[in-house]
Design a protein around this nucleic acid. Structure first.
Length: 425
RNA sequence: GGAGACGUAGCGAAGUGGUCAUAACGCGCCGCACUCGAAAUGCGGUUGUCCGCAAGGGCACGUGGGUUCGAAUCCCACCGUCUCCGCCA
């Protein structure tokens, strides 16, 4: 969430920045009103508490001196009741303020171009050249089914639409991709591997910004008030919630493989075939906790770390910067990495790398001490997919397919496939 | 799931209704003194947050309620940890 002091001191600036996202009102006026109300009541009740405290301490003294305290106690009883009423008001106002604040999105970074939606996104660079096929290329779901390594029909029997069963070399390919990505991040890029819970509580979901606004996108376990994680970002970022790190601890780089669960409410009819949009998919995620002044440099290296995977897999991609209107709720700036998908005839998102600045850190209360004895400050958090595994497998199946229906295994993955060079029917 | 114990500063731990919570005591850490230097010793310092221009004040003893003039202390609920039993991979 945003700093209430910043909203207090630069209301118009914040309002203008938030409105770059379009999509109407974010309740900033309400935030301002609640903030004022809260401070008014607070000043009053704190003064009363001070009196209550001082007077209460007199009671044992007076009693010892043999004086009658009945009258004083009656007076303080009245004061105590009044304080309770005001305290309740403070609590309610504070809760309302926090709720309102949680619904205000992050302000876009200065480099983010103003825009309405994804049509205003800016392409920054391309890598590789899309392959020219000398045969009619197939979509990955056909490649997979023809090779008997993907089974969407049987997945539908046991679960429903938007699920996949991987089989044989397909299952192994998925696992190979996961291991390849994790090894690259941990052995060459300096990340520490985390294997977190796949379910989290409400507080964690609020810390990274999925709640309260996007509850309908999540799978929920009412029995325990748990949510299935929509991304490893949630458990891994919240790992450090309510902690104060020392300056030497930073930067912290974590990477984690997890399945991800998304209800995909509101995307009925979109990407209904294949691996692109599933209720459950695998992803390797990178998460960074860094000092504020370094966070935009860290975003560049984070994105480069994701790109390196596609370079090593030798699959063409491009990098775009999201416009203010396409930016995620908690993000200040986001680069998407998009992989070339022959069946789509275009680039498809495979990674999203974002700098959240202090927005998540403030929600999750993740701080560090810039100087030994100094005041704690909020860290900056970043994360990026490195990469979406199902989409990577889809891209491999499409980009590496052969005229005879087989699929050549990218060289870097062969050690993870027991030396297998090609998947054949 | 059943029974019990516990949750106070970085750690250990005291406090069981009042004028003890920047919280006894111990350890750790930082500074100073002593020393050529170190150890030992001595002295001092070691939470965060909110309101306020400031002076100053409020809050926090796992979390949330309740009782009371006053709660770390009494009561209720929840969360977590540990032990035993049951079940289970």
């Amino acid at each position: 969430m945003l700093d209430i002091k910043r909203i207090r001191e630069d209301f118009d600036g914040v309002k203008k920045a938030v409105e770059l996202r379009g999509k109407g009102d974010f309740g900033l006026e309400e935030v301002r009103a609640l903030d004022i109300k809260r401070r008014e009541i607070l000043a009053q009740v704190e003064q009363m508490k001070n009196h209550q405290k001082t007077a209460s301490k007199q009671i044992p003294v007076l009693k010892k001196a043999g004086e009658d305290t009945t009258e004083l106690m009656a007076e303080l009883k009245k004061l105590s009741d009044d304080i309770k009423v005001l305290d309740t008001q403070v609590g309610e106002t504070e809760a309302a303020l926090r709720d309102a604040l949680l619904n205000v999105p992050n302000t876009p970074y200065k480099d983010v171009q103003e825009g309405v939606d994804d049509s205003d996104n800016v392409e920054l660079r391309r890598w590789g050249t899309p392959r020219e096929f000398d045969f009619p290329e197939k979509a990955h779901w056909d490649v997979g089914e023809d090779l008997d390594i993907l089974d969407f029909e049987r997945a539908a029997k046991i679960a429903g639409a938007r699920f996949t069963v991987y089989k044989g070399a397909g299952a192994r390919l998925e696992r190979a991709v996961i291991n390849f990505m994790l090894d690259l991040h941990t052995e060459e890029q300096g990340y520490t591997e985390i294997l977190p819970p796949f379910m989290v509580n409400r507080m964690a979901m609020t810390g990274t910004g999925q709640l309260p606004k996007f509850e309908e996108d999540m799978f929920y376990i009412p029995q325990k008030d748990f949510f299935l994680i929509p991304t490893a970002e949630v458990p891994v970022t919240n790992l450090l919630d309510n902690e104060i790190l020392s300056a030497e601890d930073l930067p912290i780089y974590y990477t984690a493989y997890t399945p991800c669960f998304r209800a995909e409410a509101g995307s009925a009819g979109r990407d209904t075939r294949g691996l692109i949009r599933q209720h459950q998919f695998n992803k390797v995620e990178m998460v960074k906790f860094v000092a504020p002044e370094t966070s935009y440099d860290e975003l560049e290296t984070l994105t480069a770390n994701a790109e390196e995977i596609l370079q090593k897999l030798e699959i063409p991609y491009r990098v775009i910067r999201l416009s203010s209107g396409d930016l995620g709720f908690s993000s200040a700036m986001t680069y998407d990495v998009e992989v070339w998908m022959p069946s789509y005839g275009r680039y498809v998102e495979i990674s999203s790398c974002s700098n959240f600045e202090s927005y998540q850190a403030r929600r999750a209360n993740i701080r560090f001490r810039p100087e030994e004895k100094g005041k704690p400050e909020f860290v900056h958090t970043l994360n990026g997919s490195g990469l979406a595994v199902g989409r990577t497998v889809a891209a491999i199946l499409e980009n590496y397919q052969q005229a005879d229906g087989s699929v050549v295994i990218p060289e870097v993955l062969r050690p993870y496939m027991g030396g297998l060079e090609k998947i054949e029917a």
